[in-house]
Amino acid sequence: MSYYIRLGLILFLIAAVASAVLAFINGLTEPIIIENQIQLEIQARQVVLPQADTFEYVEDELPYYRGLDEDGNIVGYTFMAVGSGYSGDIDTMVGLTDEMIVSNIQVIQQTETPGLGANCTRPEFTEQYQDLDAEQVKIERDGGKVETITGATITARAVSNSISEAMIQMKKQLEAAPKINIEPDIEEAA
């Protein structure tokens, strides 16, 4: 009996030491990892909405960020559109101007086929979305203005439809809650 207790104790000891070491290293690296992730998102937001200086998080059915210029005026919104592509979800960061027109998009995360669907991250594809409204953000075959990627209609359609749907949702949200925060001082209070 004591033999088995000894076995358990040894395993416990090894696991305890391992946990202690991991906890220590986690303490060192965690702040850097979180900082990295935040930087990545900030960068993406700045790419899709370069007019904005700072961003402010808004909780809603579709959470989004409000882009503010130097004086605290709303210049646009950024949000994440998620569509189901050929092999998994495609996350696209969308920047919208104040007039509900696409400022720019960036595909943040995708697992599409390399050489085909994965080309949706290329500027040749994403730049097409600039200055389109919710109606035009569809592939040509569905009556929109987006040219598909050769051999990867599904990907192009998934990206377009997810953006279009998210834009419609955004419109609804903004109409339901009008721009109450246009005054800079209210914003600070919020």
């Binding site: 290293i25 986690n26 060192l28 690296t29 850097i32 990892i33």
Partner: peptide
């Protein structure tokens, strides 16, 4: 592995 994972994620 976890150490490598965390360190690579950070640096």
């Amino acid at each position: 592995v976890t150490i490598v994972d965390m360190t690579m994620n950070a640096y």
